[in-house]
Simulated assay, not measured.
Amino acid sequence: MGDKQIGLTPDAEFSDRLIDQLDKLRTLPYIVGSSLWTYNDYRSDYEKTPPSENRAWGVVDVWRNKKKAYKQIQDIYAPVLGLKATVDEKVITITLIPRNKQDIPAFVMEDYTLVYQLFDANGKSIGKERMELPIIKPGDEELEFSFKNNRNASRTDVGLWSPMQIEVKTASSEELKNLPVETSNSPIIEFLGRTNESVGIGYTVSEKDSIFTFKYGNSKENLTKEVTSDLKGAIKIKWPTTEPFFVKLKSDVTEWSTTKQLEE
């Protein structure tokens, strides 16, 4: 099955229709699994691709920045149904809820670990602990782990880690506030990297952008070089390895971006 593209911005998420379809799969006894296409946004000139030449199907963008959909798909394919954490003055409690026997996914979990990080009232990390989990089977009763709050923690963030050291589920004892999504009337420089006598620049592209102008030089106050291009998303500029590199850009419909320095 398919659905519309997820979207370009950090707050892009799956449609309710797609979530409902994935939930329905779990009720069908002849379905044993499903997979997501695709992980990342990608550049293309395929038919009906937006003018930006960016197909926004991914849970991360072309520069691997996570969208809201990343957390959604992590929860959908987590090997457990739920992970919860609570903190009070005396006790830290972590609750893990296994999958049902008929679920997607549903498999025996072996060699998984819980990692929980503790924070004080000011949000400062005050410790991290790791705990090996027993073998967990679909249909098992929920597991509850309690610890004395000896460090006077105010919050704990918990991660479930697979044997391949992949964090497959996360939870927090507090509802973490999402940082506001930055809106800008300018392109954003996402990447700067040197290759021999050139500097590669990666940047965001909106649907309205078509021509890009770059000003660059060896200091923020000395952007004396300029080049214009219709390349969308990335460009390479020749620049000596002995010189520091600073750059800003604008499109034909936007203001100048902030100036960014190549870190070496």
Rank of each mutant, 00 (worst) to 15 (best):
E197Q: 11
N149M: 01
I136D: 00
E190W: 05
R194K: 05
N149K: 05
I166P: 06
F191R: 11
G139C: 03
Y203E: 02
N196Q: 12
I188H: 11
W161Y: 15
N178S: 15
L143G: 06
N150S: 13
K169E: 07
N178A: 15
E207A: 10
E142K: 15
K177N: 09
I189C: 05
K169H: 08
P187S: 06
E144P: 00
T170P: 05
E144V: 14
Y203H: 03
S146N: 09
M164G: 13
S172R: 00
P180Y: 04
A171I: 06
D157V: 08
I166F: 07
N150H: 07
F145L: 09
G193R: 11
R155F: 03
N185Q: 12
E141Y: 07
K148S: 15
N150F: 06
S172W: 00
S146I: 08
M164E: 14
S146E: 08
S198H: 11
E182V: 13
F147M: 06
V168M: 07
T156Q: 07
V158T: 06
G202C: 04
T204E: 05
F145K: 01
E190Y: 07
D140V: 01
N149C: 02
L143P: 01
G193T: 11
M164K: 15
M164P: 04
R151L: 14
L192R: 00
P180T: 10
V158Y: 02
L192N: 01
V199L: 06
E174C: 06
P187L: 01
L176E: 11
V158L: 03
G200H: 12
V199A: 04
G200S: 13
R155N: 11
E175H: 13
S172I: 06
S154K: 11
T183Q: 13
R194T: 04
L192S: 04
L143C: 05
S162M: 01
D140G: 02
G200T: 12
P180M: 08
L176N: 10
S172Q: 05
S162R: 04
E144M: 12
R151Q: 15
R155S: 09
G200R: 10
I201T: 01
M164F: 11
G200M: 11
P163M: 03
S173L: 02
K177P: 06
E174R: 13
E141F: 06
E207Y: 09
E175D: 15
S186K: 13
I201K: 02
Q165L: 15
T183E: 13
V181M: 04
L160S: 01
S184T: 14
R151C: 03
T183W: 07
E144L: 09
T183H: 12
R151W: 05
D140N: 09
S184A: 10
V181L: 02
T195H: 15
V168P: 02
L179K: 15
A153D: 01
I189F: 01
S146R: 09
